[in-house]
Amino acid sequence: MNALTLAIPSKGRLKDKSEAFFAAAGYELVQEGGERGYRAQLVGADGVSVLLLPARDIAQGLIDGAFHAGITGEDLLHELTETPGKNAVVVKRLGFGGADVVVAVPNCWLDVSTLTDLDAAGALFRQTHGRRLRVATKYMRITRRHFARASFGEYRLVYSAGATEAAPASGAADLIVDITSTGATLAANNLKVLEDGVLLESEASLTFARTADWTDAARAALANLRTGMELDANADGALDAFMTNMTKL
């Protein structure tokens, strides 16, 4: 009887590292139907079934409460809801999949190194060209939220699903908000990150869904799963707080 559903990334480094995280806790991941299956078991974790999903679907599922827990990027948790932390609660940052969501502009803009500079540049740009500066990004919500907080308004968003760093050179946009781990791709595309341009420091995170179906069996399965995981005091406390709040629902 599987009482608790856990979603982990279905491919790539995120999958490998997630698998390693559970292996360290003494739970071996065994995929049903071999490497390409999308369901799995954690051997030794009774009552837990595992879904292998794209990271974006995991974030959405945690926000919606479609499953109990999952590993996904904080960037996605922040992008997919207006109220990050409300339904999907990060209990532990896992120390891999680290990357920053940043504002990057063409390196030939010698006059722009902060958002205040960008605002002034944007105002002159609008006077000169009759339109606002265009920001290419797949992080529409994060960008809008952060720019509003920074009182920066001289921009328009353009959705970009991929290869965002190429947008300024192709003319699709004037600057970008994108995720980067080393900055190498940005530099290769002649872009520089603004000094106050880090909007979010993101990591793969063990996250719990507040609105999932937390039956007694699900709680029992979690209590059992947790015995193997070596959570530090912070994560332990966060999980306790989460479970306490759950009972109040």
């Binding site: 063409p106 030939c108 803009w109 010698l110 540049a121 002159l124 500066l133 300024p168 050179a169 002649n190």
Partner: peptide, 9 residues
Amino acid sequence: FSDRTHNEV
């Protein structure tokens, strides 16, 4: 490189 001109910079 950019629609924002060198003059503006």
